[in-house]
Amino acid sequence: MDQAEYYIGVMSGTSLDGVDVALVSIDGQDIDLIETHFLSYPAHLKASVLTMCHGQETNLRTIGELDHQLGHLYAQATLQLLNKAHYSPEQITAIGNHGQTVFHQPDGASPFTIQLGDNHILAAETGIDTIGDFRRKDMALGGQGAPLVPAFHRYLYGVSTSSLVILNIGGIANVSILQPNGSVVGFDTGPGNTLMDTWCSTFLNKAFDEDAQEAKQGQVNQPWLTHLLTDEYLSRPAPKSTGREYFHQEWLDQQCARQTPLLSVHDTLRTLTEFTVQTIVDALVPYQQGAHPKLLVCGGGANNPIIIQRLNALLEGWHVAKTDSEAISGDYMESMAFAWLAHCYIHQIPSNLPSVTGASKAVPLGVLYSAN
């Protein structure tokens, strides 16, 4: 490129807390975060998404209305970002919108993935070309359609002499493993915050366990933790991906039925926190290479002190830190990634990694929704 281009990334993930929006400039191998914005989910929208994610009965009208409402919400968040940053729509090359995943089924006879949020509305209301529907091209080529962020992590960090892992702990936890030989592996390790958040919402009247204040009041129950770790998803080989349609309320209820004796609210929460940590550690140990392996953590789970403390304790020999320590916002890493994916589509740069998703080849991902 002759000069920097400006892109906006829109991300609403499995945590369902709201919409993260990032404005970036991209000039070759340089990406700079200019401004960010967060817009909370209205309660009724969050409830509708949760109902759909958990596989409860729905209908076409409900799906269509939710798609429409999310499109307006994404447009609102984007326009608020532009106003905050003092940029005009004419300055922006494109928006990259992930959309809200409501069901992800990458395996079986009929693999599919559904992200809602009408990109036509987003393009029309902002006046900016929008790139969306990033996952289905990869799935059409035999891939999982996820995770897609490892390609962005390779762009950011390149190659090091020891294993470099970027861990995103949202509702689901996923890793990008950059190896010294240049190879990249990435997959969803299992639940991130979703089970803890579900427990807090159900029994503590809180959306999440801020600063692990509630989990600190409990003890890990080792027998129940051992049982949780037998879940068959955890032993599947990569490539693999998952979501709320697997690790949901019913899954948690079934596991709680195996508690003997019945645990307290706080002991259950502390054990679920340890479950997230242990699944991450178990997933990473086989990939340790080099003298100085490093783990960089982003996403909402990076703000949980128990998770960070336990990762440090269990990953001996690893340097564990937040991505913020290397000047990359942990809260807006994924929205930056989808801004970059939009850039890749505009310039027809392959943006999936077959080594991560299992697709048959690397291709530019996304579909253009023109503002004109």
Rank of each mutant, 00 (worst) to 15 (best):
D211A: 14
C53H: 08
Q56D: 13
A327L: 11
F338Y: 06
G127H: 10
H319Q: 15
M52R: 13
Q348R: 15
S88I: 05
S12P: 08
E326F: 10
A302E: 06
Q217V: 10
V220K: 00
G366P: 04
V265Q: 13
Q69V: 14
G243M: 09
V281W: 03
D331G: 12
L195I: 00
G171K: 00
D32A: 15
A146H: 02
V356I: 06
E125K: 14
P350W: 10
A4T: 08
T93F: 03
E274L: 02
Q105S: 11
A123D: 09
T194S: 12
N119R: 10
P180N: 04
L148Q: 00
K361S: 14
W199E: 11
V49E: 01
G171D: 05
A47G: 09
L204G: 12
H37N: 15
I63S: 08
E35C: 14
D107R: 12
F275N: 05
L252G: 04
C200D: 05
A238H: 10
M1F: 11
I166R: 02
Y74R: 10
S329A: 06
R61T: 12
L81R: 05
K46F: 01
L314M: 09
V277H: 01
D67S: 11
K206S: 14
I308Y: 03
G143S: 08
Q217L: 13
I26C: 08
L122Q: 05
L295G: 01
M52F: 13
K206I: 07
N119S: 12
L164I: 10
N304R: 04
C344D: 05
W340K: 08
T198I: 14
G192Y: 07
H319D: 15
D133Y: 03
K240I: 07
K206N: 14
A43P: 12
V19F: 03
E232C: 15
S183F: 06
C53R: 09
M52N: 11
Y6V: 02
V102G: 03
G358W: 06
Y233I: 14
